[in-house]
């Protein structure tokens, strides 16, 4: 029975994802609501991502510096930090923060709408709630995560630069010249594309959990929790898979 339920759930998730993709591609498009959700996603996460990325840049630089200094390779610090931030740290920090902040929000919001029959009310009035609620949110998280990652990378590098500058007065141009030499287009674009997948995972998991919430307030809590946990796990899986894939290009 458990295996049967598991397979039914997998089929249900597949149908949900396929429907989200199909309704994203095919008209009618939800321009207005998608733009609104993009604003919500950006506005809700920007400060937190700026703050945590800046701190991550500072901490990573301070922790890496003694190790590099012991090899006399302190001048490699900008290269090390920039590669770490752009390849992995920036997307991962942004993805995990958004999974917590946006995933829980989407799961709880849609879950609450589900248990209070608001989604049913949209269904019976023929207003296409799937398109309005799910497609707009999934599109917004997919589009906005790459932008947030670029912003997070910039803040982390800024934090790193200020740390280096404080310790040994390295100039702005010198630091970012080292960064630009060590970072490739493959690093930048793979990071941005990966962030898009992170955004899709956060949006689709949050929407699925919320859209299928049941059993009152407990169900809403469970939807929010599932949205966070499942999207975080998915982020690590996507990160691992993308690393394997990107390494093919690096070779």
């Amino acid at each position: 029975m458990k295996i049967r339920n598991f397979l039914i759930r997998i089929a249900d998730i597949y149908r949900f994802v396929a429907r989200a993709v199909r309704e994203t591609i095919l008209p009618p498009y939800e321009w207005k609501e998608t733009l609104h959700q993009c604003f919500v996603v950006g506005n809700r996460s920007l400060f937190l991502i700026a703050f945590t990325s800046f701190l991550a840049g500072v901490v990573f630089t301070r922790q890496s510096r003694p190790s590099l200094a012991s090899f006399g390779a302190e001048s490699w610090l900008p290269s090390l930090v920039s590669q770490a931030v752009i390849r992995s740290l920036g997307p991962l920090i942004t993805g995990l923060i958004c999974a917590g902040k946006l995933g829980s929000n989407i799961g709880a919001e849609l879950g609450s709408m589900r248990v209070s029959e608001q989604i049913d009310a949209m269904e019976v009035s023929g207003t296409r709630p799937f398109s309005y609620l799910v497609v707009s949110r999934v599109t917004a998280t997919t589009l906005m995560l790459p932008l947030l990652v670029v912003f997070a990378d910039a803040m982390a590098l800024l934090g790193s630069y200020l740390t280096v500058n404080t310790i040994n007065s390295t100039g702005f141009m010198l630091y970012f010249n080292d960064v630009s030499v060590s970072v490739t287009y493959v690093d930048i674009f793979s990071s941005i594309i990966k962030a898009g997948f992170f955004g899709f995972a956060i949006g689709i998991v949050g929407c699925y959990a919320g859209y299928h919430a049941e059993r009152g307030t407990t169900g809403v809590g469970r939807a929010a929790n599932t949205a966070v946990v499942a999207s975080m796990i998915l982020i690590f899986i996507v990160d691992l898979l993308s690393l394997q894939f990107i390494n093919l290009f690096r070779r």
Binding site: M113, S116, A121, E123, V124, G126
Partner: peptide, 16 residues
């Protein structure tokens, strides 16, 4: 079809 059928929910189901 649903456009021609109105449904009043027990809990009103207003978009809060």
């Amino acid at each position: 079809m649903r456009l021609q059928v109105g449904f009043s929910f027990q809990g009103s189901a207003l978009y809060d």
